[in-house]
Nucleic acid binder design. Structure first.
Length: 923
RNA sequence: GCCCAGGUGGCGGAAUGGUAGACGCGCUCGUUUCAGGUGCGAGUGCUGCGAGGCGUGCAGGUUCGAGUCCUGUUCUGGGCACCA
């Protein structure tokens, strides 16, 4: 029998499906293990060969854990809401659901061909009402909770209302959009609308006027992680800043816990670092500066309180609410013009245009420690969204302040001994302080870090300010002016937002006639008929963003068909959290922050039992495309082979990589590829047309997209799986290069050859030889360790070595071969399942037991040592493996080859490295 | 500017401080075949006829011994960024 992958793979895929081999249930007698892939957004282009990389890795690990006795939860689903389906709907009028379902079906058929062990009974789609019911349900909980800083968790908003009724804001320590202060009586006197507005300051899901990233081209707002360098991540359209009344999630309240939680999870350092940067903790001081001649204090934030004596001016962000309060009448016109000009610019323009600009307000502030009178300016280099939107400028020790001071001719006072500030500022936090004394405080002579501490202590004591920690992490903007997303379970009663009752969920996405905004500029849901409650109250028109549905999907997999709860206590208590999460780095600051936030919120409510959702996370690298080129001689239809192209004036042209094999062009296929090439002529080298290549992004326009279906058809899923893993370390990005796939395919054929010669089954029950045992035990040891370390490429090398050894040793021992099959099963599930049954085993190989290895079989009879002199290896000696070290030393020194090195020298030291080297140090 | 990774043959890549280049691709030779392909066997870091010499981006250091540890430097890839 020949190795026929088509036969084998379809047969076993059907078997697994029919037998429900991979279905999973809670089983308290077995330890659980939860392996999760980041679920895909089903795009219209289908899967390319890069997508399954992480899925294959997680599949290997899942199968390995299962063979080791774990009850493995390994589900898959679809992140089904997203912009592309909606854009397509706008263009074609086709309902996004239709497109999405088609794409999902295509994904599913592609995934099925690769032989994954997903429990498809647990499949979820974020656009399924039975799924998004729980997204809406959680949103309502977020609306009805606030973050209590004293309890350090989310608490019901009713408890906050109680506090307001008793003592007003007195004693309330809660995360809020702005500081509020009122008495119980003032609270009671508020109208319902006023109370609602007040509570919005505290709710975890709240409506707020915030500066948002508005993308006019997409007609929607975007979250910070959906914008990169001033353009939208999807589509690359310009994004501008706009003040809008939007739903937001108070993610910032969780910033300290999101930061602290990183220390308890097993993620790569670089990913944790990326999150730490994104959260952006910075410890400093908030200080009050009096405005001269006005009853007003400016709050500023600084990490360099020590530089207080070098403050020569203040700067406000153009959007700062202080602006109106400090601008003098004489400066009003100039300021208004400046602010108008800034508003006109998009975020991108502001970033590209790094020219210094600003305007004087006409007012002065008083330095609370030095007592100096300093001008207050406005400039766009100060951001409204960070700190207080106002700074004290210390040009000598901050490069941005320095540039501003030089441009507007403001004084620069150096504060650190030896710092030369004639050309640039001195930003380093080191050195001895100078010029830093008044009758209140004397920092002169102190080291910078001592001066920072001393200043902080002073300002707290004097009530000038307080020590404060600031986070860069912003609240997530949660409204999208789009159709294809979860509707908000919110209606407006006399202008007051109210959430629906749980029994009204899911609030289903209504039908609309077009997927565009209405004529009056309302979101597409404004087109829906009867989009109001039975009482006639209008329902929110925005929908939720993409990350809403993907923030808790890992919980839903635990109990996907539960109609009464997001996840039952029993299921959650058993599966707990994700033990291994595999996916791309592109989600580092989006999904992976939101999910952690979402999970911590549910944890606060006692709905889940773990506060971190993903224990271990691995980022698989990206697979880039490898494009091929042909070289057309200019103005002809003649193509010249790669190595001969220098002799001609040629134009490189992308050629479809699917008609190129090992960089050799299939000329017939090329002629059929495009009509204009039908009559092409070729200048060959050695009778072949060799193509050039380049590593580029995998994309249709470069004709370098490799579809896994084609690889599966030609070589089989097992070969695809092995090859993707063999390509290199999992976490590294690498180009897809089909050259070399023959190597792993050849390996599978060799494996088959261990079992069959022609149609004769070779397997026997004879005792395995010592050598055979050694080969297989070496393999088990290596592969077990490699899988634990996610070093799959080296395991495959080990398989190749083992199969070569066994075939050389003509090993046909059932005992050895069965072990080989089990160990190989996670990598190549189809062929191993086939051979497992050929050996007469019943049931799936998945239920076998991972073999253990014994050092006993790995022992060597003889060991070869390299004998070196002063570290230079000179000759080898071979001695019995159990020879004691001092005997080995003597043998090495007495060996024939040692004579010439020892002549006239004294031996200083002899080092014996077990099994490797005898180093004789001579002098 | 700040923070991460990483530089090893023609290529992808292996190497608990212990014979650098496992394994695979490619290439060369032989063999099977009418032939091509496949299969099988041998070889393949550079240099030299050879003994040998030189080799892990560069420069130092620690060590009997460094691709691996330390210091500096340089290049490449990625992330963050008027964040006070």
């Amino acid at each position: 029998m020949e190795y026929n992958h088509r036969d084998i793979e379809s047969r076993w895929q059907n078997y697994w499906k029919e037998h429900g081999t991979y279905n999973t249930e809670v089983d308290k007698n077995r330890p659980k293990f939860y392996v999760l892939d980041m679920f895909p957004y089903p795009s219209g282009a289908g899967l390319h060969v890069g997508h399954p990389l992480g899925y294959i890795a997680s599949d290997i690990y899942s199968r390995y854990k299962r063979l080791n006795g774990f009850n493995v939860l390994h589900p898959m689903g679809y992140d089904a809401y997203g912009l592309p389906a909606e854009q397509y709907a706008i263009q074609t009028g086709q309902h996004p659901e239709v497109t999405t379902v088609n794409n999902i079906n295509r994904y599913r058929s592609q995934l099925d061909k690769i032989g994954f062990c997903y429990d498809w009974n647990r499949e979820i789609k974020t656009c399924d009402p039975e799924y998004y019911k729980w997204t809406q349900w959680t949103f309502i909980r977020m609306f009805n909770h606030y973050y209590d800083r004293d309890a350090d968790k989310a608490l019901p908003i009713a408890e906050l209302i109680e506090k307001f009724e008793k003592n007003g804001t007195e004693g309330v320590n809660a995360a809020s959009s702005q500081d509020m202060s009122f008495t119980a009586d003032e609270w009671k006197a508020m109208t319902d609308k006023e109370k609602s507005d007040t509570l919005m300051n505290y709710r975890i899901a709240y409506l707020g006027n915030t500066m948002v990233n508005w993308c006019p081209k997409l007609g929607t707002v975007l979250a910070n992680d959906e914008v990169s360098e001033g353009v939208s991540v999807r589509g690359g359209y310009p994004v501008e800043q706009k003040l809008m009344y939007q739903w937001c999630l108070r993610v910032s309240a969780y910033a300290p816990r999101l930061l602290e939680g990183l220390d308890r999870i097993d993620w790569t350092d670089s990913l944790k670092e990326t999150q730490r940067n994104w959260i952006g903790r910075s410890e400093g001081a908030q200080m009050k500066f009096k405005v001269d001649g006005k009853d007003l204090e400016l709050d500023i934030f600084t990490t360099r309180a020590d530089t207080i004596f070098g403050v020569t001016f203040m700067v406000l962000a153009p959007e700062s609410e202080y602006v109106d309060l400090v601008v003098t009448d004489s400066q009003r016109k100039e300021v208004d013009e400046y602010i108008a000009a800034i508003k006109h610019k998009t975020e991108r323009e502001r970033m590209i245009d790094k020219k210094v600009s600003g305007v004087f307000t006409g007012s002065y502030a008083i330095n609370p420690i030095a007592g100096t009178r300093i001008p207050i300016w406005i400039s766009d280099y100060v951001l409204a969204g960070y700190g207080t939107g106002a700074i004290m400028a210390v040009p000598a020790h901050d490069s941005r302040d320095y540039a501003f001071a030089r441009h507007f001719n403001l004084p620069v006072i150096p504060l650190i001994e030896g710092a030369d500030v004639s050309e640039e500022s001195f930003d380093a936090k080191s050195g001895k302080m100078i010029n830093s004394a008044s009758d209140k405080l004397d920092l002169n002579g102190m080291e910078v870090k001592d001066a920072i501490a001393a200043t902080k202590e002073f300002i707290e004591k004097e009530g000038i300010g307080k020590v404060k920690v600031n986070y860069r992490l912003r609240d997530a903007i949660f409204s999208r002016q789009r159709y294809w997303g979860e509707p908000f379970p919110v209606y407006y009663k006399d202008g007051i937002p109210c959430t629906m009752d749980d029994n009204q969920l899911p609030l289903q996405l209504p039908e609309v006639d077009k997927y565009l905004p209405t004529e009056s500029g309302e979101p597409p849901l404004g087109r829906a008929k009867n989009w109001h409650t039975p009482e006639g109250y209008p329902i929110e028109l925005c929908t939720m963003p993409g990350f809403a549905g993907s923030s808790a999907y890992y919980l839903r997999y635990m109990d996907p068909r539960n109609g009464n709860e997001l996840v039952s206590h029993e299921a959650n208590d058993y599966w707990r959290n994700v033990d291994l999460y595999i996916g791309g780095t592109e989600h580092a600051t989006g999904h992976l922050i939101y999910s952690r936030f979402w999970n911590k919120f549910l944890y606060d409510l006692g709905l889940v039992c773990e506060d971190e959702p993903f224990k271990k996370l691995i980022n698989q690298g990206m697979i880039q495309g490898r494009s091929n080129y042909v070289y057309r001689i200019k103005d002809t239809n003649t193509f010249v082979s790669y190595n001969l192209r220098k002799d001609y004036d040629v134009t490189p042209i992308h050629v479809d990589v699917n008609i190129v094999s090992n960089d050799i062009l299939d000329i017939e296929a090329f002629k059929n590829w495009r009509p204009e090439f039908a009559t092409a002529q070729f200048i060959l080298e050695d009778g072949k047309y060799v193509c050039g290549y380049a590593v580029e992004k995998m994309s249709k326009s470069m004709f370098n997209v490799v579809n896994p279906d084609d690889i599966v058809e030609k070589y089989g899923a097992d070969t695809l799986r092995l090859y993707e893993m063999f390509l290199g370390p999992l976490e590294q990005s690498k180009p897809w290069d089909t050259n070399g796939i023959d190597g792993v395919n050849r390996f599978l054929k060799k494996l088959w050859g261990l079992f069959y010669k022609g149609d004769t089954l070779l397997v026997d029950d004879a005792q395995p030889t010592k050598k055979d045992l050694k080969s297989i035990h070496k393999l088990i040891k290596k592969v077990s360790a490699d899988i634990e370390n996610f070093s799959f490429n080296t395991s495959i090398a080990a398989f190749m070595i083992c199969v070569n050894e066994l075939s050389q040793q003509k090993c046909h021992s059932r005992e050895v071969l069965e072990k080989l099959l089990i160990v190989l099963n996670p990598f190549a599930p189809h062929v191993t399942e086939e051979l497992w049954h050929i050996l007469g085993n019943e049931g799936s190989i998945c239920d076998a037991q991972w073999p253990s290895y014994s050092e006993e079989y790995l022992k060597e009879d003889e060991v070869t040592y390299a004998v070196s002199f002063n570290g230079k290896a000179r000759f080898n000696i071979t001695v019995p493996a159990d020879m004691p070290r001092d005997e080995v030393e003597k043998t090495a020194i007495g060996a024939e080859g040692a004579k010439k090195w020892l002549e006239g020298k004294t031996i200083r030291k002899v080092i014996v490295v077990p099994g490797k080297i005898v180093n004789i140090v001579i002098g």
